[in-house]
């Protein structure tokens, strides 16, 4: 799956880190780092993390693999 975090919006509440710690990590006290393309097996965790984000900074892919525009 694919995700992106709007780090302008992120304020380091770190709710995502508690809910999906293999995908989201804090570097220090505020600086969020994450895996942009985590394994599909983590989808439920990541969706919960996105829903828990107080500033709604996590965007999850809304496509399921169809029409991703492979290189022509």
């Amino acid at each position: 799956m694919r995700i992106v975090v709007d780090l302008n919006r992120c304020q380091g509440y770190a709710q995502c880190v508690y809910l999906a710690h293999e995908v989201f990590k804090l570097n220090g006290t505020e600086s969020l780092t994450y895996d942009p393309n985590p394994d599909d097996a983590r989808r439920l965790q990541v969706e919960r993390a996105a829903a828990a984000c107080p500033v709604r900074a996590i965007m999850i892919d809304r496509l399921d693999g169809a029409e991703r525009g492979a290189a022509s």
Binding site: M1, R2, I3, V4, P36, I60, D61, R62, L63
Partner: peptide, 10 residues
């Protein structure tokens, strides 16, 4: 593993 998520079909 840095591909951007898609908001919709294009």
């Amino acid at each position: 593993h840095t591909l951007l998520p898609r908001a919709r079909e294009l």
